[in-house]
């Protein structure tokens, strides 16, 4: 599914990623943890194609295609989805209009039939119900005036609708209460199948009680310094990061 090889990236000449190697197979959930400033969000941004980062070395292959040369929209169409840490408020742009445009753009790319208004509404309403989002949500401008929890649930709604092959969740759990956290986790778990994969970036073990990872990686100072199974997350919860940092 995804192969990251010796990925190095800098922002304004400051080296943030210093050689990341990571292989994610279809059907797997990977958690990436690490202290602040270790490069977690940079990795998410680089995967999605945010401007402002310079890739100095390495490659990122999604289903054997190098995505680093692709524009953000091409990556999205190829199946990359970034759930934003800070979803952007877009006043004046209606949520239905936005989501329908995005869904149809991606369907078109996959050679699927575009959804008409009726079919789209039927689909989106059923997904919203699963996520506990009120229908009036669709009439509001994208994220404008949404609470933190609503914004994150909106990210999960978009993810559910776009059905990405690789979803990258950048601290989607931050600022969520336990109910919202459960809803977000349910959304991710429902999406999961043998043909897609998720990378969950988080500070806290608590999200991993709901989204059970197959692998846990610790990112520190631009490198993955430790990988393990879900028990690693429990160790981190108990002992913090210091014991790993000393060893690295």
């Amino acid at each position: 599914m995804l192969e990251i090889k010796n990925l190095k990236a800098c922002i304004e000449e400051k080296q943030i990623l210093k050689g990341i190697n990571l292989t994610v197979n279809a059907g797997e959930v990977h958690a990436i943890m690490g202290p602040n400033g270790s490069g977690k969000s940079t990795l998410a941004s680089v995967l999605a194609g945010r401007e402002g980062y310079e890739i100095t070395d390495g490659e990122v292959l999604l289903q054997k295609n190098d995505i680093l040369e692709m524009a953000p929209e091409e990556r999205a169409r190829e199946g990359v989805f970034l759930a934003f840490q800070y979803p952007v408020e877009i006043p004046g742009v209606n949520s239905t209009y936005f989501l329908k445009s995005a869904v149809n753009q991606i369907r078109k790319h996959r050679g699927e039939e575009e959804l008409d208004a009726m079919k789209f509404l039927k689909l989106v309403k059923s997904k919203m119900k699963e996520l506990g989002l009120a229908e009036e949500f669709l009439k509001r401008p994208v994220n404008a005036g949404f609470s933190g929890g609503e914004k994150k649930r909106n990210e999960i709604l978009q993810m559910t609708m776009l059905e990405p092959s690789l979803a990258v969740l950048d601290e989607t759990d931050s600022g969520l209460d336990i109910d919202a956290l459960r809803i977000v986790a349910d959304g991710v778990n429902r999406l999961k199948n043998q043909n897609n994969a998720q990378i969950v970036i988080t500070h806290y073990q608590r999200l991993l009680d709901y989204i059970v990872p197959d692998f846990v990686h610790v990112l520190y100072n631009g490198r993955i310094i430790k990988s393990g199974d879900k028990t690693l997350a429990h160790d981190l919860e108990e002992k913090g990061y210091d014991w790993l940092i000393k060893d690295s």
Binding site: P72, E73, A76, G92, V93, F98, Q105, P141
Partner: peptide, 30 residues
């Protein structure tokens, strides 16, 4: 136009031109 908003829309599969138009439409829509 807000670059972060353009990126957000592009990250959902919309091309840059569509994203800009959508934002501009939103700006008048407000």
């Amino acid at each position: 136009l807000d670059n972060e908003a353009i990126f957000y829309l592009r990250a959902r599969g919309l091309d840059a031109q569509t994203a800009r138009r959508m934002l501009m439409h939103g700006f008048t829509g407000e």
